[in-house]
């Protein structure tokens, strides 16, 4: 059963179709990758799904519910949360409170403070940041700031997590750790839709991969199918 569906999702910036008539779906429990050259429209598609932009035209459904036009906080509370390509953390707030914000505000019914704190502490532990809970988030390394974002997104009781280039800018060790984190997130029963440029990572963890090029979806299949697709190799892998 698809947890997320999009029909003819389109977004123009002036005359430029950043995302053009994209049909897509993500099934419950799947890890789906989204790849494509720079400027292909991947981040824009995530912005459309998470409510930062409204598709025009197009329809997006989450758990069967039409979320087209819903506000970001509403979509988040339904169980769909995200991280950002350019990390967006609350730099002057302690790491713990970054995560706490998600559990206090992002959950479907809201949480009592005590439960929210417990949840946040558990997630800090899950992403391996328990030791730096009191540190202002801006003081962490990029890899750890990305983990703060992941913990904050999970704290909202996300059922679907959108990861926008979790591994960009990380060194090989950190990339391996991030891949391991993705696998463990999946182990929690969270469905994952992830943008990634690191081919090894995307081929290794994804069940299925979608390819965007100039705002259009040009391929959708298993990692193996994508790796051997002529079109994909031409526009993307072959570059």
């Amino acid at each position: 059963m698809p947890i997320l569906e999009g029909e003819k999702v389109t977004k123009y910036f002036g005359g430029l179709a950043a995302v053009s008539k994209v049909d897509f779906n993500v099934d419950q429990g799947e890890v789906v990758g989204l790849i494509g050259p720079n400027g292909a429209g991947k981040t824009t598609l995530f912005n459309l799904i998470s409510g930062a932009f409204v598709p025009k035209p197009g329809v997006i459904r989450f758990k069967g519910e039409n979320i087209t036009g819903s506000k970001p906080h509403q979509i988040c509370r339904l169980g769909l949360s995200r991280t950002f390509q350019e990390v967006k953390i609350f730099a002057n707030m302690p790491v713990m409170q970054n995560v706490l914000l998600g559990s206090l505000f992002g959950t479907p019914t809201g949480m009592a403070s005590a439960n929210a704190a417990k949840e946040a502490a558990e997630l800090l532990d899950f992403v391996g940041l328990s030791a730096v809970g009191k540190t202002p988030a801006g003081g962490l390394t990029l890899a750890n700031q990305k983990r703060v974002e992941v913990a904050r997104a999970l704290a909202t009781k996300a059922e679907l997590l959108l990861l926008d280039e979790l591994m960009a800018g990380l060194n090989p060790t950190e990339t391996a750790e991030a891949m391991e984190l993705v696998t463990r997130i999946r182990g929690r029963g969270v469905t994952i839709f992830m943008i990634e440029h690191v081919m090894k990572a995307i081929m290794g963890v994804c069940d299925r991969i979608m390819v965007l090029h100039h705002g259009e979806k040009i391929a959708d299949g298993t990692p193996k199918e994508i790796a051997t697709s002529k079109t994909v190799i031409e526009v993307y892998l072959g570059e």
């Binding site: 930062a52 970001p72 906080h73 988040c76 950002f84 953390i89 609350f90 730099a91 914000l101 909202t156």
Partner: peptide
């Protein structure tokens, strides 16, 4: 308060606050 935390998060990064469930 919880409300104060939300206000502070808006000051730090409004977009992140909105996507974390805060009705900014």
């Amino acid at each position: 308060s919880k409300f104060g935390l939300a206000l502070q998060s808006i000051g730090q990064n409004e977009e992140a606050a909105a996507h974390s469930g805060v009705n900014v």
